[in-house]
Amino acid sequence: MPLAWLGMVPFTLFAVLFLILPTMNIVVGAFQTPDGTPTFRNVLNLFQPSILSAYWISIRISVASALAGCLIGFAMAAAITLGGLPQWIRGPLLTFSGVASNFAGVPLAFAFLATLGRLGLVTVILKDWFGINIYGLGFNLLSFWGLTLVYLFFQIPLMILIITPALDGLKKEWREAAEILGASGPQYWRMVALPILLPSLLGTFALLFANAFGAVATAYALTGSSLSIVPIVLFAQIRGDVLQDPHLGYALAFGMIVVTGIANGIYVWLRARTERWTR
């Protein structure tokens, strides 16, 4: 038996060296001064208006894109699973979701600049054909709504990919049993289907939130450093110490872990509460 533990060594070594130690390093660094003495000053220094507003806009974008991604993705997944659409739509849509959910980062930014940028196809068409100048109306890709709109391009497909199997897991008989017991469609959804789906929905929401919260490449390629969301600030800090305090960078990164950690903590807690009825 002791020899069997040897089989776990490569994975453990890998996880410790390239996942756990680097993260711990950041966490510990957040509570140290440059000469190594323990301190809360770095974390307290996060509470300055510019950094707080960076967190705030990051959280807002992440919540908005995760929420909208969940809703729209759910609607589309429900359409192909329960909505009575032809069977052949399902396969291609799932494949496409696989592609789109991985089409993030720099190219995604390019795609939206080419579409909704000042010279983008949709911008031009709206202006030339319908006389609507979206930029005149205050639209800007480099804004809260702009970035949320772009993030949806990978959030929606991710939701579709995760929730489709869950929707498939809803047995037809549950719906029929509810119906023959006198329940209306909305009653069935409220009392049976949604409670059953809730753990999956919460888990996906937490995942989409973390996904958007940590995304750097899309925002950076889209905006350079002009939009101060947390990952962009951290990126600039790592590149050039723009905060003029290396340990404030640690605290900034630590704050990111805390936020995604809280999101997942809430998910785990809610899941434990909602999943009493499973093995």
Partner: peptide
């Protein structure tokens, strides 16, 4: 964990470590 810890934090840790 890599889905929860942002990649930028992980690489930051690499640079320091």
């Amino acid at each position: 964990l890599p889905l929860v810890i942002p990649p930028i934090v992980i690489v930051f840790g690499y640079i320091r470590l």
